[in-house]
Amino acid sequence: MMDCERVADYFREVYEGDSDTQTEKKVEDHLKSCAACREDFKWYRVTVHALANLERVVPPNDFLEQLNSRIDKNSSLFQFFIFQIKNLLNSAPAAPVPISAMSLAFVTVCAFLVYSYAPTDFSHGEKTGLSLKTNSQNVTLPSGQVSRPVDSGVVASAPFSPQSSTFSRAFVPYDGPGRSSAVSWHFPTVADQIGADNLTVESPQVDLALETLRNILPGIHGRLVDERFRNAFGEALVGVIIPSNRYGDLTSALVNHGAIEVGARSLGSESPAPTKVDSRNVRLYIRFTQAPK
């Protein structure tokens, strides 16, 4: 004996005489004994019958004339072009959505490329009054430090500042040089991803470490842009601009040239400026401190 659910699966076959004798017999037996399925089958028959007996419709008498005039209209080149567009949209009504999305993606990619390859130069910023010195400000840093492994394998520690916290976002506000608006937006760079920020380098010989830095900067297409102070404890603070994708090389080189630790030190009470990042370069301050002997 079939169950009710299975019987319903055979409604079409039984109704259209498309089932084998055995199945038909089983379904008939079930229908005889099950009032609910019998009723259901009755509704099935009614449905098919009603569908087949919907009122007939006929085209208007001038259908052919209308059609010919439409075809003639479409035969001109311009109309043909419009028709093809309409055709495309009608044959694929969902097309406007992907077309819009693709257009948006295209514009975004173009904007990104233009921005990425636009010349950026911090020295220009200095000329226009956007130099490090004029931007300098005392930033009171929270005590929290964020450590991330960088691609060189050295653990760099970046003080957690409002700017560094923006690295986790998709876009980073940047008041870069040569740009009139106070805040512009750019896509995350390598520097964003590695969390580049001001560094502390602990070295037994600060002078040597500084010299090392001066030597390695040309090799990574970077340059020294600021040297802030040397205090009684032998600490030095220098500002550098390096390509954002060479951050890992810088930290590796510092370690290889005698710095015993990169990062992991508080910057103290004074910080010259938060890290500046644009699409290609990163400007950061490096504090050299004397390692305990």
Partner: peptide, 17 residues
């Protein structure tokens, strides 16, 4: 084709009911 038609009819049937 047949199974899809059956499912479609069942949907119409339920709505009619």
């Amino acid at each position: 084709t047949k199974s899809r038609l059956h499912r479609a009819r069942m949907v119409v049937k339920e709505k009619l009911k």
